[in-house]
Amino acid sequence: MNVAEPTTTVVDASGVGPGGITRTLTEVVRHWPAGQRLVVVAAPAGWQLPAGHVAEVELLSRQVAGRGQAIGRAAASLRAITGRLKPGARVLSMSPSAAILGSRLPVTTVVHDLAFRLWPHDLSAAVRRYRQISYGTAVRRSSLLICVSARTRHDLAGLYAVPEERTAVWHPGSDLAASPGDPPAPLVELRRRGGSWLVVAGHAPHKGVELAVDALPSLPGQVLVVLTGGNRVQRYDDAVRRAGVADRVLFLDHLPESQYAATVGGAAAFLMPSHFEGYGLPAAEALRLGTPTVVSPDPALHEATGGRAVRMTAWTPQALVAAVTEAAARPRPTPDRHGRSWRTSVAELADLIAASAGPRPAAARATR
Rank of each mutant, 00 (worst) to 15 (best):
A51V: 11
A4G: 02
R241I: 02
A34W: 00
G102C: 03
R368F: 11
Q234M: 09
S345Q: 06
R117S: 12
R330V: 07
T24Y: 15
V209R: 04
G158E: 15
R308A: 13
T367Q: 14
P335D: 10
L255F: 10
W197A: 09
A328R: 15
G88I: 06
A322H: 07
A51S: 12
D351F: 04
R73I: 04
A177G: 02
R131Y: 13
A363L: 14
A204M: 07
W197F: 06
S179K: 13
V57Y: 02
L38V: 00
A319Y: 11
P120I: 00
D175P: 04
A75V: 01
E285Y: 05
H112F: 07
L227Y: 04
Y236N: 06
E210V: 11
L38A: 05
A75F: 01
A98M: 12
H171F: 13
L123Q: 15
G158S: 11
P180V: 13
V16P: 14
E165I: 08
V188K: 13
L78H: 02
T24G: 08
A55C: 03
E56Q: 11
I100G: 05
S196Q: 15
R23D: 12
T291Q: 11
H171W: 14
A300N: 02
P106R: 11
A215T: 03
R311I: 10
R193N: 14
D175I: 12
I81V: 15
L227M: 13
P18K: 09
T82G: 00
T344G: 11
R128L: 15
G46Q: 06
S149I: 07
V111L: 00
V111D: 05
E285H: 05
A366P: 00
R62Y: 12
H338D: 14
S103F: 06
N2R: 14
P87A: 02
A283F: 11
E27N: 14
R90Y: 03
D238F: 07
A42S: 15
T344L: 12
R368L: 15
V294W: 07
G72T: 02
H338S: 14
T367M: 14
P186Q: 05
A304G: 08
